[in-house]
Design a binder for these strands. Sequence first.
DNA 1: CAAGCGGTCTTTGTATACAAGTCGGGTGTA
DNA 2: TACACCCGACTTGTATACAAAGACCGCTTG
Lengths: 245, 245
Amino acid sequence: MDWNAASTGGSASEANTAGGAGRKPRLADRLRCQLEEEIATGKLPGGTRLDETGLARRFGVSRTPVREALSSLASAGLVETRPRQGAIVAGLSLGDLIQMFEVMAELEALCTRLAARRMTEAERQRLEQTLHACFEAADPGRPNDYYEANLAFHEAIYAGSHNPYLAEQTRQLRNRLQPYRRTQLTGPGRIETSCREHAEIVEAIRQADAISAEGAMRRHVTIQADTFAELAARLPESPAAVDNA
Amino acid sequence: MDWNAASTGGSASEANTAGGAGRKPRLADRLRCQLEEEIATGKLPGGTRLDETGLARRFGVSRTPVREALSSLASAGLVETRPRQGAIVAGLSLGDLIQMFEVMAELEALCTRLAARRMTEAERQRLEQTLHACFEAADPGRPNDYYEANLAFHEAIYAGSHNPYLAEQTRQLRNRLQPYRRTQLTGPGRIETSCREHAEIVEAIRQADAISAEGAMRRHVTIQADTFAELAARLPESPAAVDNA
DNA sequence: CAAGCGGTCTTTGTATACAAGTCGGGTGTA
DNA sequence: TACACCCGACTTGTATACAAAGACCGCTTG
């Protein structure tokens, strides 16, 4: 894992905490990254109590950096803290998730619209590359590979929007929703559908048809959200659970 | 000032830090609110160095809560921290601001589109009220009154979107851009124009014409951004300055 | 006179100590 | 037996102490 990367909380201009590569990172940043990952992965499901002393013991540091990490996570909305009552991993209700997916779809759509208008030739080529990679990784047996290829595809579009702030916001939300998206690619034929949708988006971008591209992307993400909602609706549990597998 | 309100960093469901009213807030939260306001107001212009010891002395507390406040502000992107070099108020370049305004316009437009489809009758009436208030406060002599009315108008639309997460994100960005927007209402005839644009938006919502409403709002915000960009372009300074008046 | 260098000095990062509030269990009483 | 109150342990919030890493300044030297 890359300790230096401040995966969330990015500023408008660039990463705010944790300076350039090669620098010795702060303990607090390392802890934040670690906890972030464990929350995103679902290792720490919503509602888990995060005990400062316990975490300090577990990581072999004092409470001070732990507190800073938790504070940072609270600002990002990944954990909720009640004064004098400690922090718990933020459990997103089904309603919360639907709202967030709705915003996600719009942000991605916006990125795509801007990308269709602003992408350079080099960026277009890069996008086509990622599309090919998606098709090549479209093997239901190795969903992780497709997950990576899919990520690269969307990243290429973020870059094409030529709006780093927008890109960072979208990335952050995407990261936050990650544990609730992973399961969807396991659906039968979902990967092939995803690939076709990607191709449709690229085709629209190729023709510089911003409106079509935007619509295609919105549908692409919305379909995922619907798939998720359908999946989640079967679970009676209120705070949407993630699979800890 | 309301110490309990966590004006930024709101979670999906509700405010994350600082529990319900009546509870004794933490020093760190108070400090964060205070610094937030001073940054938003422009009292602390971009690039200002935030010395932990100095702030601790100034507020009469120890460095610990100051550090937490700064950490939280860093997560929100209001300050940048470089390891071992402390925190400075994030100075937004003109490019950063343009990007953020672009996203702002789209978020507001999205709120409006959703509001046009989802507003209840009561919410529509509330919106009309805020519109009237805007017209009544349209006095160039008291720009603050119009500022408040304008805020209420937009808040009414946020509420109408029925997507609290989206509302919170929009609010946060709005807050962040606040110091760069205040100056615009001083332009000649700007308030009247703003009112007319508001009326146009309300009319579209009244007719449940989501597309028109979205477009009207996007134009409304984009015009402000353009006004700002024009204004800022005259200042040769690179890190966009705010008026400390 | 300018550039490189070393020392000091401030400032941040981390650890520890202390205070204050909250939660739970136990006990007493109606 | 059930409820209320009290006490204690544990947790968080805050303050202080210590260590290390840049920054600044003066000195030396080419």
